[in-house]
C-alpha cells in the first residue's frame, strides 16, 4: 500500500492509522453444527480524528465488527491494531456507546459517568470532577442525581456518551446510538455529538442504518454488504459542516449510498 511508503508516511501528519483492521474474519458456530461466516476479510484503515460511519442492512455484521474493534469479541481471523498495538481486549483506548444505552440502573447519572472512569489511575474526587465536567459537556449537569429510569431516552443516551468519554478514550465506538430516539431528539443528538467531536477530537466509528444520519455526521461512509459482511463501498464525504439535507451534493451522496445498499 502506498500509505506505508516512506515519502507518504513522513509527509502526511498522523499517517499511521488510529485503527487498522486487517483481514478480519468472524464466524459463529451455528446451533446444531456448522459455522456461519458473518464477516469476511474486512480491511479498513481509519485515520486519527476521523468520523467514520458504517451503514448496512440489519444482520450484516456491523455490531460484530464494532465488538471486535472494542475488544469485546475475538476475531476468527485477521487482527485489529489501535495506534499500532494489536487489540487483545477492551481498555486499549476504546470507549463504547451501546444501542440500548446500557446504563447501570442502580447508579445515578453522575455515578454512571464516574463508573466510566473507574479504570483510570485517578483519585475518587478527581473522577467525580471529571464526571461533572462531562455532564456539563452533554448539558445534563442539573440531572446528576437522577437515576436512568427518571430520564428520557435522549438524556439516557447523553449520559451513555458522557460515560464513554469519562474513560478519555482515543476512540469512540457507537452502535446505532440514536436508533431508539424520536426524529427531533435524534437530530438534536447528532448536532450535540458533532459539537463534542469537534471539542474533544476523537476517532469515531459510528454505526447507523440511517443514510441521512451517516451523511450528516461523517467524513467517510463505509457500506457493509451482507452474507458474508464485507466492505462494498468506501465513500469520502467531502462536504463542509454543518450539512444541509437539501444540498445538491448531499443528495448525490444519498443516491450513491442508496444504490449501493439496494443493489
Amino acid at each position: 500500500m502506498s500509505r506505508t511508503g516512506p515519502e507518504r508516511a513522513s509527509s502526511a501528519a498522523g499517517a499511521a492509522p488510529m485503527i487498522d483492521i486487517r483481514h478480519v474474519r468472524k464466524q459463529f458456530d451455528v446451533r446444531g453444527g456448522g459455522e456461519a461466516l458473518v464477516l469476511d476479510d474486512i480491511n479498513l484503515s481509519i485515520a486519527a480524528n476521523q468520523f467514520l460511519s458504517i451503514v448496512g442492512r440489519s444482520g450484516c455484521g456491523k455490531t460484530t465488527l464494532l465488538n471486535i474493534i472494542a475488544g469485546l469479541d475475538a476475531a476468527s481471523g485477521g487482527e485489529v491494531l489501535i495506534a499500532g498495538r494489536r487489540v487483545v481486549g477492551p481498555g486499549q483506548g476504546q470507549g463504547m456507546v451501546f444501542q440500548q444505552h446500557a446504563l447501570f440502573p442502580w447508579l445515578t447519572a453522575l455515578e454512571n459517568v464516574v463508573f466510566g472512569a473507574r479504570s483510570l489511575p485517578l483519585a475518587k474526587a478527581e473522577k467525580i470532577d471529571r464526571a461533572r465536567e462531562l455532564l456539563q459537556l452533554v448539558g445534563l449537569e442539573a440531572s446528576a442525581g437522577k437515576y436512568p429510569r427518571e430520564m428520557s431516552g435522549g438524556m439516557q443516551q447523553r449520559i451513555a456518551i458522557a460515560r464513554a468519554l469519562a474513560l478519555d478514550p482515543d476512540i469512540l465506538l457507537m452502535d446505532e446510538p440514536f436508533g431508539a430516539l424520536d426524529e427531533l431528539t435524534r437530530i438534536e443528538m447528532q448536532q450535540e455529538l458533532l459539537r463534542i467531536w469537534e471539542a474533544r477530537r476523537k476517532t469515531v466509528v459510528f454505526i447507523t442504518h440511517s443514510i441521512g444520519e451517516a451523511l450528516t455526521l461523517s467524513d467517510r461512509v463505509i457500506l457493509l454488504a451482507p452474507h458474508p459482511g464485507r466492505v462494498a463501498r468506501d465513500i469520502a464525504i467531502d462536504l463542509p459542516r454543518p450539512r444541509s439535507r437539501t444540498d445538491r451534493r448531499f443528495n448525490e451522496f444519498y443516491e450513491q449510498i442508496w444504490s449501493g445498499l439496494s443493489s
Binding site: 469485546l72 477492551p90 476504546q94 463504547m96 451501546f98 440500548q100 446500557a102 447501570f104 463508573f115 473507574r118
Partner: peptide
Amino acid sequence: VDPSLIRASRSFGL
C-alpha cells in the same frame, strides 16, 4: 443480568 450491562462493564475494564 441484562447481558448489555455485562458488556458495558467489560468495556470499562471490569
